[in-house]
């Protein structure tokens, strides 16, 4: 367990550092962005989705800007990548490395091994997202504005659940496969494709990132509550993925 905690702590710290660096840069440029809102709108005019996003930022100010820069861009891109990499390597990595048998051979139940690793990877993502979000008010103060901690906690929770769903689905593939690289490539291709189609107005509704865009977080901030229906769906996906993955893992031979 010590080894796993150590490595996931390092991965989580690395993710946090990257999210924090991007957040710092984004907030640093907020005044310039706000001053040039007109030019930004003109620039985004040919892309209806982007135009909608900039209009939302113009309407709601810094909170929508943070939602766009931190959650929609940084967390969705880096968080999805981290979720896919952590999960694809979690079990398939052991098989690929040849350590799967020795990992299972110890007097520890498979349920425990499976759950521990699932939770550690999940926690590494969630804690990084939450901690980086909690530094937002202090960073915003440097540019003369702020955001409520409660809004940031709610947004972080929802973002973690969104990334957790992607993590869980990848974890299922990891539980049945022995090729972590292949899983990672397939899932990253899927995530990039989904992110790309988000910007195409005619097919944007097929993108999973519609569930984690500026509008989603602006709504959470505006209503001061999570969308429980969406939370339920995300939790259901994770529970199903966990159950399927566990069932396959319990029957897997070294």
């Amino acid at each position: 367990m010590g080894r796993e905690i150590k490595y996931y702590a390092i991965y989580g710290l690395f993710l946090f550092a990257m999210l924090e660096a991007l957040l710092y840069a984004a907030i640093h440029w907020w005044p310039a962005f706000a001053e040039n809102m007109g030019a930004m709108k003109a620039l985004a005019a040919p892309l209806p989705i982007l135009k909608d996003q900039i209009n939302l930022v113009d309407k709601l100010g810094a909170p929508a800007y943070v939602a766009g820069q931190h959650y929609f861009k940084a967390c969705n891109i880096l968080g999805s990548t981290a979720a896919i990499l952590f999960a694809s390597n979690a079990i398939a990595g052991e098989v690929h490395r040849g350590t799967f048998e020795v990992w299972l051979a110890r007097p520890v139940s498979r349920l425990r091994l499976f759950t521990e690793r699932f939770l550690l990877g999940y926690a590494a993502i969630g804690v990084a997202v939450l901690l980086s979000s909690l530094t937002t008010p202090a960073l915003l103060q440097t540019v003369g504005t702020t955001m409520a901690y409660s809004d940031l906690v709610r947004c972080s929770l929802f973002q973690t659940l969104f990334l957790g769903a992607m993590y869980s689905v990848t974890y299922v593939f990891s539980a049945v496969s022995s090729q972590p690289l292949k899983i990672a490539f397939v899932m990253l291709f899927f995530a990039i494709t989904e992110f790309a189609i988000y910007m195409v107005k005619t097919i944007t509704h097929f993108s999973i990132f519609r569930w984690s865009d500026i509008e989603t977080y602006a709504t959470i901030i505006g209503r001061n509550e999570l969308d429980l229906q969406r939370v339920g769906v995300l939790l259901l996906i994770q529970a199903l993925a966990f159950g399927i993955g566990l069932q396959r893992f319990l029957r897997r031979s070294p």
């Binding site: 350590t99 110890r106 520890v108």
Partner: peptide
């Protein structure tokens, strides 16, 4: 597995771990 020990025939190791750390990892439980 609590009543026996097992040494697998085909095995990989965590190359980045030190010998003592790896031994303790193998002896988890």
């Amino acid at each position: 597995r609590k009543r026996l020990t097992y040494a697998p025939g085909e095995m990989g190791v965590y190359r980045e771990m030190r010998g003592r750390e790896h031994l303790h990892w193998l002896l988890r439980g």
